[in-house]
């Protein structure tokens, strides 16, 4: 049975909460929802932006009782440069697998002068789909399907930002 956890499920202002059967923590700030172009994601208070997962901020989900497989995850407001005078943004995703240990992956929104297509590169498995474009009016939303391939003994997953 696939369980879906959405950004709107995170209570603003907390930093440690069981949501959808996983233990979620944020550090060093607290959960903070942000809605852009109709997509609500959870970020973390403090840092460069007060409502996104910034460099040196970490959102982590841990399972103490069972390992799991990840059918998909979706990230928002991962832009690629000129919309907000920003860089090609990079998300780092780290998993801990019982059989394979710690594995680190990156999602980079690669700049496209003309969109569509709007593209991003993922160092893991599966496919990358753009759900909302990387434009000033868009949400720069990316869905990664089957991101870790057949790894099905994951016990934690952590999201943080890298320098773009």
């Amino acid at each position: 049975t696939v369980i879906t956890i959405n950004g709107i499920d995170f209570p603003n202002g907390l930093n440690n909460q069981t949501i959808g059967g996983l233990s979620w923590t944020s550090s060093p700030g607290n959960f903070q929802q942000k809605t852009v172009a109709g997509y609500t994601g959870v970020g973390i208070t403090g840092g460069r932006t007060g409502d996104e997962i910034d460099i040196e901020e970490f959102l982590t989900a841990t399972s103490a009782s069972f390992p799991f497989w990840v059918p998909s995850f979706t990230l928002g407001v991962l832009f690629d440069g000129p919309e907000f005078d920003d860089v090609q943004e990079v998300a780092q995703v780290t998993i801990v697998s019982l059989s394979q240990g710690t594995k680190v992956f990156k999602l980079t929104n690669t700049y496209d002068a003309i969109i569509p297509p709007d593209t991003a590169s993922w160092t893991g498995f599966g496919t990358v789909t753009n759900l909302s474009p990387s434009t000033g009016a868009g949400g720069a939303v990316w869905k990664i399907t089957n991101p870790f391939g057949s790894i099905n003994d994951i016990t934690s997953i952590e999201f943080t930002a890298l320098t773009g």
Binding site: G21, G76, T163
Partner: peptide, 14 residues
């Protein structure tokens, strides 16, 4: 760089 988590799907493995 900065972003939000919009959704995570997982499936427990017995």
């Amino acid at each position: 760089s900065d972003f939000t988590l919009v959704q995570l799907q997982y499936e427990p493995v017995p």
